[in-house]
Simulated assay, not measured.
Amino acid sequence: MGQKLVGILLNAAMHGGVPRLKTGQESLANYEEAAAAYGLTPCFVKLSDIDVASGFSSVYMKKGLQGYRRQIVPTPEVIHNRAIYDPRSTGVERLLRQGIQVYNSCNRYGKDQIHGLLERSRELQAYLPVTASGLSGLREMMNRYPDLILKPCRGSVGNGVMRLTRSGEGRWLWSYSLSGSRRKVSRSVNPDALPRVLRARLSSVPYLVQERIPLAEINGRPFDLRVTVQRGWGGAWQVTGLFAKLAAPGGFVSNIARGGEALKSSFALEQAFPGEEAARIRMSVLSLSLALARELEKSLPGLADIGLDIGVTKHGQLYFIECNGRDQRYGFQKAGLRGVWKDSYRQPMGYARYLYEEALRMNSY
């Protein structure tokens, strides 16, 4: 099979770091290795460097010992989107209209949107926490549940997440992290006169209010599971791997960026459950994750590479927590799962080759 280009679409800031090998958590070496396994050559591009009219793009490509250099190439026919754009941006849509196959064409979905799509499935409803929205939803949920999690619909890596816990004597405990810090703050609040700052937050941006799932714990620290589900060669969904995210001591969010710790999923589950039960839960998590991906793809065109957060209660009940459209794969590396980390790059490149072969097959008719 001859080599073909596969585009890796990056945001401008990350794209600018390619020649200096400064791309944050994205591994250029993993892309190179994974693409080569499928006879592909990766090129790194940003939207503003794609000229739809001419069909050519300015990209970064590796040139041996010279490192990454700018080149003008025909715009790749297949592009893996790893960028997040303003919802009003039409750049990716223009590429799709030109017949360019952009997979994970949108990778930032609101938590409310994802919850609504999954709620349509009768089979999956049992795995969804009870959910409301906004200030009115908060008051309703406070009447029903003693422990709540408040999440911004568009938040990421745990930013803006808050907790409200009934503390007795008619009071609630409001917990949150200071902006730009991992330091947690807690204060007692009157449910009949919620703090102005709290009310302002829920009024300024859309928030989900959910019953807090009593997650399984290790030494008093709750954990959930990050499951990477991807389409690879052949086009079918498969679970590439999973790891556990353990909340920081005293914390209520498990995000690694907020002080959480990445662990091997088998180790975490075996710490919280007997051996056979841990194995059963792990298999159930894999099955649920595939069912979630297949349900979401019905409504989200181009979906091919996602990270799902799955909670497990102390009694082994599974709950869907959230879907990450741009899965941060570095958790596998931090959990000591280097092989799975590499696989999380290999699968999308296999899917790119699959899309090329499918287009060739269709054009041969």
Rank of each mutant, 00 (worst) to 15 (best):
S57D: 00
A13K: 15
D305T: 13
E270D: 12
E295W: 00
A34E: 10
A352F: 07
F273H: 02
R97F: 09
Q101I: 06
E297L: 01
M142Q: 12
G16M: 11
Q230Y: 10
F56C: 04
Y68F: 15
I72E: 12
L65I: 09
G116M: 03
P214E: 11
R294F: 00
V45R: 00
S175Y: 01
A83C: 11
V161G: 03
L164V: 06
A12G: 00
F252G: 05
F56D: 07
S136T: 14
Y85H: 12
V73C: 00
S105A: 15
V189A: 03
P348I: 05
I218F: 06
A278L: 04
G250C: 03
A36R: 15
G234V: 10
I72T: 13
A132K: 13
D305V: 12
G7E: 12
L337D: 09
D309H: 12
S266R: 14
Y109H: 14
N363M: 13
M61W: 00
P42Y: 05
D343F: 05
G64T: 03
F332Y: 15
L21W: 12
R144K: 14
W233R: 11
G16Y: 04
V340N: 00
Y207P: 05
V6L: 11
G316Y: 08
L355H: 10
G307W: 05
S204K: 15
L28D: 05
A83L: 03
P301V: 07
I149Q: 04
P249M: 05
L246D: 01
T23F: 10
P195S: 06
L28N: 03
I84Y: 03
A352V: 06
Q66C: 08
F56N: 10
L288F: 08
V312L: 02
D224G: 04
L173D: 02
L5P: 01
G158W: 11
V161A: 06
Y85Q: 09
D147K: 07
S188K: 08
S266W: 07
G170M: 06
I321S: 00
L148Y: 09
M283F: 00
E32K: 14
A36W: 02
W341T: 07
L194Q: 12
V59Q: 02
Q328W: 06
G259Q: 04
L208H: 03
S121T: 04
L47S: 14
P74G: 10
V157P: 00
K184A: 10
N30D: 15
N107C: 12
S175C: 10
A13D: 13
Y31C: 13
L47D: 08
R163Q: 13
G64E: 03
R221F: 03
M349R: 04
L118V: 09
V185F: 09
D343L: 13
G39N: 08
V18W: 07
K4C: 01
E32Y: 09
N30K: 09
G311E: 01
L117C: 02
